[in-house]
Design a protein around this nucleic acid. Structure first.
Lengths: 341, 341
DNA sequence: TTGTAAGCGTTATCAG
DNA sequence: CTGATAACGCTTACAA
């Protein structure tokens, strides 16, 4: 049972031909006779031959593997991006090594190192919340591995990127709130050193400014974008101050935390306080009240990023001109922000 | 800029020593002088040397990569299993290639082929819904690649496995429903050729039998375990027949579909009809009413499967004795099944 | 159309 | 402690 895997040499021996011929036959090289191809095919099957990608990668100087680093795989958004990436990469003959940074800068660096030493053909990265500098990414470029950033991108890197127009999405959402008639606002979001929260905040402010609401005292909270953090913040807040008419949480999880804190205090959503979220997590349409939020086209983002990367990998050029794709998100209006007439 | 990556040979040349010495130094071989090691380390850094895992894998005859096939990555359950797997594998120096079968038998076969040709050190598989035979898995064994099945396992394969005690979880949940006083039941679940739904159904029937409820006419629906399918089924059902006291949907998504259909018809949950789900998706605690369900320890399942696989990989033995780990799930009682007193 | 031979970057073995 | 050499399995000029 502990027999070795068959190699092209084994096939060659069985047929009294050379390994090169076998190699060519297996790769459907045009200058190999149909007859030999046939023979090679059948004995390959007979010997249960499985090509060794490692050897061929070494010889060819590149692997058919793409590396991808995401903060967390169990986020609906990222797992859909991954699906999008695979839908482009697999048909092109690549497969994906997925790494999680777990929002840690250290792990992100470690992941990158692993991918570089694995000689992946290209790397896709969405930066961790902790990541504030990008020297580790420059190492990828030094290693001449094509790199594409998506979603959590960095302005400092001169590489291809795909992002969502978070400012636009946030602006649209805020405009909707303003049009509904809300005039006192609270902002809750993730840390603003993360580009996505910065942009969402900017879109929010921009809309408010258009309604001349920029000189009001707006409450504004930044924290880890998870349910508990938002819930606790609101629980505390309720004890101390008056609530605004509407709370815009720049993450659905935070919005959920807000809603739970409000409902626990018998405050009705949206009648007493309206709540909006961001990113259309699966639960957003399932909870009560259904959550107004912004949908990001996550699979499309994955496909775009993968396409950009593929082009760079397949490009013969020495110098690649980085490109940027920006996806427009879509406002989804649901019950949680509809004002009673 | 298009310079080649530095190799150990380059380091050797720079120091007037041989590649073997460099290799040993980099691997911290005991019989290399501290002095040479020091020199090698510094010039490696200077040349921006990155070890080539492909070459070393080829030479050593094995890769430091593990393959994993899941039906879908964007299911909370599976993404958590993946996290568990990584938490064991990464510290052990392995990384993970994740493939999605998308519940398709064809894609599962294709994925397996990719992993075999990539000469991964081991493979973890959860079978697709479509998968009814396991010949493709036998090919993995023929290739002498350790294989571990998890969650959606097959009795036909004589390999190590990790599963959830679905029968137990379902039994416990049904007992809870019976203890609450419900006496007329409807079952909704995924196709019963899938082992997990079969087991859940068996647990359900077992509990009913204990209450002598087995001769009643139970309504029972099998379909793709997604929200829409369950919702439509109930919408149709309501038009035709009377509803039971409680509906046990063996998937939270189906339970959600049921709840939406009921609420759309002004039927109150749980007052008019109680609903239970299975697997504690994130939304289960967020919806209204909060959903009674069964929690599966997904990360733990990942860790267990990875540990079994690692042991097989690191085992020197020729023949491995397959082992099976069964995890006990936990009943989570929430509002959706609590009977008004 | 096929064979020959060299080499991808490492590491294992044997020798010194 | 270090060096020389071969080999892992495959691909690809160059020859024939």
């Amino acid at each position: 049972m502990a027999k070795k895997q068959a190699t092209i040499q084994d096939i060659a021996n069985a047929l009294n031909i050379t390994a090169s011929t076998v190699s060519r036959a297996l790769n459907d090289h045009p200058k190999i006779s149909a007859n030999t191809k046939e023979q090679v095919w059948t004995t390959a099957k007979k010997l249960n031959y499985q090509p060794n990608h490692i050897a061929s990668s070494l010889r060819k100087g590149k692997a058919n593997t793409i590396g991808m680093i995401v903060p967390r795989i169990n986020r609906h958004f990222f797992s859909n991006v991954i699906t999008g990436v695979e839908s482009v990469l697999n048909p092109a003959g690549f497969n994906l090594i997925i790494c999680q940074s777990d929002e840690s800068f250290q792990r992100e660096k470690q992941n990158l190192k692993t991918l570089i030493t694995s000689r992946v053909a290209g790397i896709l990265v969405s930066l961790s919340i902790e990541t504030k500098e990008v020297k580790h990414l420059e190492k990828v470029q030094n290693s001449h591995i094509p790199l594409v950033l998506f979603d959590r991108i960095s302005d400092e890197m001169n590489v291809s990127k795909v992002d969502n127009d978070d400012e636009f999405g946030s602006y649209e959402l805020t405009k909707h709130l303003l049009n509904e008639g809300y005039r006192s606002f609270m902002w809750i979001g993730g840390p603003r050193n993360s580009i996505i929260y910065k942009n969402r905040y900017n879109g929010y402010k921009k809309a408010l400014k258009e309604f001349k609401l920029n000189d009001t005292k707006f409450d504004c909270f930044e924290g880890t974008p998870v349910l508990d953090v938002a819930e606790q913040y609101i629980q505390e807040y309720i004890k101390q101050k008056e609530l605004p008419e509407v709370i815009f949480a720049a993450s659905d999880y935070m919005a959920m935390g807000v809603i739970q804190a409000l409902q626990a205090n018998k405050i009705k959503v949206p009648d007493d306080v309206a709540v909006a979220g961001y990113s259309n997590e699966p639960f957003a349409s399932l909870i009560s009240p259904k959550l107004t939020t912004v949908e990001q086209f996550s699979e499309e983002m994955g496909r775009s990023a993968a396409k950009l990367l593929l082009e760079e990998i397949e490009s013969e050029e020495d110098t690649i001109i980085p490109r940027k794709t920006t996806l427009k998100p879509r406002l989804i209006i649901r019950e949680s922000t509809i004002k009673k007439k």
